[in-house]
Design a protein around this nucleic acid. Structure first.
Lengths: 265, 265
DNA sequence: CAGGGCTGTTCCTGTCTGCGGAACAGGCGC
DNA sequence: GCGCCTGTTCCGCAGACAGGAACAGCCCTG
């Protein structure tokens, strides 16, 4: 380590490109519009650098400049790429229609989530008629320890990943967020036993959810189907009903991904 | 070429970033998975360059490497950005629910399209129960001259843009595609008069559509709402009915974008 | 209305980065 | 088992990029 080659594990990384990608990831739901200085400060790089990057991104449609405010927001090219990604995500293609019919039957908002690093990402969202305004959105990343989908996925991963999540710290979001490693492990054990996960306001107060895992042909849990709604509507009875129905949906999607139930373990 | 400053109109463009963005845009619905060599050939750059770019993109979740085939596909980060973009697109936010209720009433697939350069981009898609499998997808770019939404938008743009579209050439896709500039101008005139546009298989055989323009508070036409379906279901009668209903939806979205009908022109 | 303090934008220069050719490695199919 | 095709690594030179500083607009504020 004291050698001249730091060997930080990853040599070939393009500097300007990396910065550009970090620029793109500065944009968020809460801050969809940013100025040059703001981004430069946040990333700790020069204003002119950011300006050059934004100009290049704009020329390719990845960001859009508001000529009056001279601030930048994301451009339609990112949507084009997102659309291509979705249409080619097998779990999305196979799940979409099943999710739709679920929503039609129960009129509660449903998501499809997949694992990405130490987060879940929503790859599909179908809203119920009762508008649950903008709690989540397509592509949204959430932690693994405080959502039902996160736990439904986490419960079936290698111990190494679970430990990594714990090592990174179980951030508290609400009163009911699980922040104690021991308790998390117990809950994950429950989830493995009963086959589904729940959350009662663990990420956001007043928002409950139920989730079941989805497996692919390698038998690995790659995602989760989840129902979200206001806690007051999620009575224990309803949770039980939703869970039972969700399990069917989860199994069906898994089957379509090539998963089959083994006779004997 | 013999001068030192080519002054090609746009100086400050980051080379590596530009190449990287072009790499991303190589992925498409038809080719969601690409290899290094393939991309390098297509872009006319070295294999090692592409490899370095892909590695950097992968490290940030913009592409994903399939470890077995060693080929690359888009990563979930593009979906996250797409979701942020959508949620903050005013036309999407205001239009979504109106589109949903339209689909519930008529059970035909509906899109929301906006103008981007010389193309339309679909920013929203709500499918009818009758699955019209994958004709289009979110973020899809289409030409302006051969779709109903494209024409509905084009008809109300400055003459300069219309001429530019013609100058670029009216590519033929089917037997009914309008390829004659004169004829296009006449059709646009019709559209301005009757307030909506139609297409009968102009982009794809057997697929018809009807579209109406959407204006924002500057009174500019910024997008279009469009109904798509198989030609055999789009009888003249049905087209008339759909158009009448769509006009209401278009007006309502426009109003929500701050557009108001002026008393006298 | 004029000034200050913000922005975004442009210019410039030295340094170190990123380009591409060629060599290496690994897998698949003939 | 051999070639041929991939993806990956190495390396040296050229020139592209980072960032400081100067410029230019805008919007408040006084």
């Amino acid at each position: 380590m004291q050698g001249q080659t730091p060997a930080d594990g990853q040599e070939p990384a393009l500097r300007s490109l990396t910065t550009a990608l970090r620029v793109l990831q500065c944009f968020s739901m809460e801050e969809p519009e940013l100025g040059v200085t703001e981004i430069a400060l946040r990333l700790g790089v020069g204003k002119s650098t950011v300006h050059r990057i934004l100009t290049t991104l704009e020329r390719n449609g990845f960001v859009r400049k508001d000529e009056t405010t001279r601030r930048y927001r994301l451009g339609l090219s990112v949507l084009t790429l997102g659309g291509i990604l979705m249409s080619n995500l097998e779990i999305y293609r196979e799940g979409q229609h099943l999710l739709e019919s679920f929503v039609n039957r129960f009129d509660e908002t449903v998501h499809l989530a997949v694992l990405e690093g130490l987060s879940t990402v929503y790859v599909s969202k179908i809203e119920s008629k009762h508008p649950v305004p903008m709690l989540t959105h397509l592509g949204r990343k959430n932690p693994l320890h405080c959502t039902s989908s996160g736990k439904a996925i986490l419960a079936f991963q290698e111990d190494e990943l679970i430990q990594e999540v714990i090592r990174r710290g179980l951030t508290r979001y609400t009163r009911t967020t699980i922040t104690d490693p021991e308790q998390l492990l117990l809950r994950l054990e429950d989830i493995r036993r009963q086959g589904f996960a729940t959350s009662e306001g663990e990420l956001r107060d007043g928002v409950s959810s139920v989730a079941v895992p989805v497996r692919d042909y390698t038998r690995k849990v790659v995602g989760a189907v989840t129902v979200v709604g206001p806690t007051y509507r999620f009575t224990p009875d309803k949770v039980r009903t939703l869970a039972r129905q969700l399990l069917d949906v989860g199994r069906e999607i898994s089957t379509r991904l090539g998963y089959y139930v083994r006779r004997s373990p």
